[in-house]
Nucleic acid binder design. Structure first.
Lengths: 148, 148
DNA sequence: ATAACTGCAAAAGTTTTGCTACCAA
DNA sequence: TTGGTAGCAAAACTTTTGCAGTTAT
């Protein structure tokens, strides 16, 4: 179960996505409504095919190309994040949640989100020492459950 | 310029790779010799096509498929690492260097290696608190040069 | 009205694989 | 000798794109 997703209803997440899409200057078509609804109803991190399948339960007519095109537009406008885990097709998540990184359960494939201010600070510090400024980063912990 | 790669000569890096390949139970063919030499002579992180091109300067007969097959075998035996940066084809690096993470210069595409014991410890700690054990991780800082 | 958008099918790019021949051990 | 390995070409997969028709604003 994903706490974060449950804090806000799919309906309200959809409204947020819709608003973000419109303020990005994009048209609200019926295909995009379906895609956004599918994404709003996802508390995991679906890839393009999964998102397409979920979208089609809402509107059969939506093509995979439209899913990709919509995700690309929304990514360019900072509305969604494109996650690319090792050896997998890209996955998508709404960007309206606070910044976080990911733990990938290598046995089950589950993705857990976490946030660490300390790590963020360390990253910035390391980059600064090398003459760089962090624009964005990816941190993924590939883990297995602790046996206790 | 990459300090790490310069600490050890391409020749000696090749010998190490050759040894690792043989102890993985793989046969040392002339194609693999060429691939390993190309990799040993690379102080960056080449993708399959780049590695293939470099390999062909040594032995024209080596195919791209052999580069991929060799990398897959070596990866399975822990001899090389497959890096998959956001939106790029996979890159390869010899695994004989101490563990490190990567800074990607988003303007030039340069890749800089760094190591932080503190961050490693924090990662393990965070995972432990969530009931997980880190098997491996990926940390990439996408950065731009600091203007000073 | 018209610029943005869509589905479809084809293309592009990366990586894998089936097959037959070959070669390292 | 023989099981692993090679090249080649085709396939598999993910993602993008050209085109001609459609639609939101």
């Amino acid at each position: 179960m994903n706490d974060k997703a449950d804090l806000v209803s799919p309906k309200s997440r959809y409204e947020d996505l819709k608003k973000a899409l419109k303020s990005s200057g994009l048209k609200l078509t019926k295909q995009r409504k379906a895609v956004l609804n599918a994404l709003a109803g996802s508390d995991d991190h679906p890839d393009a095919n999964q998102l397409h399948r979920r979208t089609q339960t809402i509107d059969k007519s939506v093509s995979l190309a439209t899913v990709y095109r919509t995700m690309t537009e929304l990514e360019n406008n900072g509305v969604i994040h494109r996650l690319s885990f090792q050896g997998e097709p890209a996955r998508f998540e709404a960007a309206d949640t606070p910044h976080h990184d990911h733990i990938i359960d290598i046995d089950s494939g589950d993705v857990i989100e976490f946030q660490s201010e300390k790590i963020e600070r360390l990253q910035a510090e390391i980059a600064r020492e090398l003459g760089y400024e962090v624009v964005h980063h990816r941190l993924e912990l590939y883990c297995s459950k602790t046996v206790k």
